[in-house]
Design a protein around this nucleic acid. Structure first.
Length: 216
DNA sequence: CACCAGGCAAGTA
DNA sequence: TACTTGCATGGT
């Protein structure tokens, strides 16, 4: 098994802190986690600032907003009809089961919270883990397509590995530390974006030299 | 112009 | 179970 802490430090040295979701409220992080699905973060920022300007970054007001108006505000994030529905599915949970108090939901124990989130149509494993980690502050490692590509490219896992095999790989190989999981996931996205595309440019990848059996 | 982005669910066989 | 497809704007 590769030394995942060494890999982490290599990435941190190469790229520095990524500052993911800094200074935002937990509720805003939840909204962002849905809006960013298969979408560039840049586009999500505009959608969120539309919501902020409308004073709508709170569960009750956002839930009371008509769906077609929500669509228009989040349009820059793409898949806007789909995401409006998904947001409303989450809002319904918060408003109807937690009296509009998102912290009441987020303060549930990690396992319960994860199951609650996964029961919402439109929230899958990655979005649930993003909310656990970045909104609720629970040590839940987030796996995304870049993580998948990096692990395969470097021969650290078989290409048939599923989400939970990859998640376990990190969670069993690292101390349970929220700040570490937070930064590590962001760094994997960064290195994947730069060096683990379909047409790889691996010559100056900072992970070079940490590979087993001379892969790549 | 083509291709891609911090996924997910529904449909098909 | 294991593929495939729809969803959509904005940047390179």
């Amino acid at each position: 098994m590769p030394p995942f802490l060494d890999v982490y430090h290599r990435l941190l040295d190469a790229f520095g802190p990524q500052h993911w979701w800094p200074g935002n409220s937990p509720f805003e992080v939840m909204v962002g986690a849905i809006l960013v699905q298969n979408t560039a973060w840049k586009n999500v920022e505009r959608a969120i600032s539309n919501l902020r300007e409308g004073g709508l970054l709170a569960p009750q007001p956002l839930y009371e907003l008509p769906e077609n108006e929500l669509c228009e505000l989040i349009r820059p994030a793409g898949y806007y009809r789909l995401k409006a529905g998904r947001l409303r599915n989450l809002l319904r949970l918060i408003v109807e089961e937690y009296n509009g108090d998102s912290m009441a939901l987020l303060d549930s124990n990690a396992q319960t919270l994860r199951e609650k989130l996964l029961s919402v149509k439109g929230i899958g494993p990655e979005t649930a883990d993003s909310i656990l980690l970045y909104a609720a502050g629970k040590p839940s490692f987030v796996i995304d397509t870049y993580t998948h590509r990096v692990l395969i490219r470097h021969g650290w896992i078989g290409d048939d590995a599923d989400y939970y095999q990859m998640k376990d790989l990190f969670e069993l190989g690292l101390p349970q530390d929220v700040a570490l999981y937070n930064e590590y996931h962001a760094l994997l996205v960064r290195v994947g974006h730069l060096y683990c595309r379909r047409t790889p440019r691996c010559t100056d990848c900072p992970l070079r030299g940490m590979l087993p059996d001379g892969a790549l």
